[in-house]
């Protein structure tokens, strides 16, 4: 692993023996128990596992929403353990796009303003923000609904707005937590197609899910149990793809 690191361009995610422990003594819960994982640029990874397997904790740590108890986490080459709260907010804003199960759009705020919000925290000028937000909505096929409020959109449409919001900052990582968990089959299909298309364009996507058929859409599946990675289908594929491409990626 270490030698592989040295040869490749910096990975988007590099987890090094990450442990996350909640509680103390008798009540101690090891949510993550020494996880090491590397995700390269352009990968579409599904992290799967039963409830309580540690995949949500994994999502929080990858998303810089929570800090590990021990171990090191490099996000796009930056060691996050050394960052303060302000810098972590900057990382979340610039490097990561979040897609949540319950969409998490700001209520009473138009779709286009929801999409533009990450740019507001980045001090992008209002007019430019608006243009970029419309562009992102267009990319998910929702430019016609730009002026609608979240309450006026269907679940699938809300999730597409959320994806637009995640993409508007051009992040290195799209981090999705059960993105289809609250959607019907048809809408789920649409969202997964959208992910497939984004992946085809070179986006790095990490998707947390417990549904096998959703996970099947990913290129690589990381299976978790009791805070540890018990199976990782895709590492070899990814490496093979890397070599097949002649090491230029």
């Amino acid at each position: 692993m270490q030698s592989a690191h040295a040869r490749r361009p910096r990975p988007v995610i590099a987890l090094d023996r990450i442990r996350k422990v909640y509680g103390q003594g008798e009540a101690e819960v090891r949510a993550l128990d020494g996880v090491s994982l590397t995700i390269e640029r352009g990968e579409f990874v599904a992290i799967v596992g039963a409830s309580g397997s540690g995949k949500s904790t994994m999502m929080n740590i990858i998303g810089c929403l929570d800090a590990p108890t021990s171990g090191r986490y490099f996000m796009d080459g930056i060691e996050t353990g050394e960052l303060d709260e302000y810098q972590l907010a900057q990382i979340r804003n610039r490097k990561i796009g979040f897609v949540f199960q319950s969409f998490n759009l700001i209520p009473r705020t138009r779709a286009v303003d929801n999409v533009a919000m990450p740019l507001a925290y980045r001090k992008v000028h209002r007019r430019e923000r608006h243009a970029l937000a419309l562009e992102a909505l267009d990319a998910v096929g929702l430019s016609a609904r730009a002026g609608h409020l979240p309450s006026q959109l269907s679940g699938g449409q809300q999730q597409r707005v959320a994806i637009a919001r995640a993409l508007v900052t051009e992040p290195v990582l799209l981090l999705a937590d059960e993105p289809t968990g609250a959607l019907d089959t048809h809408s789920s299909e649409e969202i997964l197609d959208l992910f497939g298309m984004l992946h085809a364009r070179g986006r790095t996507i990490v998707m947390i899910t417990h549904e096998p058929d959703v996970a099947a859409r990913a290129e690589r599946v990381v299976r978790m149990q009791d805070g540890q990675v018990i199976a990782d289908t895709g590492t070899a594929t990814a490496q093979a793809a890397y070599h097949a491409a002649g090491g230029t990626r």
């Binding site: 929403l65 302000y86 979340r92 804003n93 979040f98 998490n104 700001i106 925290y121 919001r165």
Partner: peptide, 16 residues
């Protein structure tokens, strides 16, 4: 609270 969480996730700092 939830809105605050969303804002923080998409990059709002404490100051914001």
């Amino acid at each position: 609270t939830r809105e605050i969480g969303i804002r923080k996730a998409i990059g709002a700092t404490r100051g914001n």
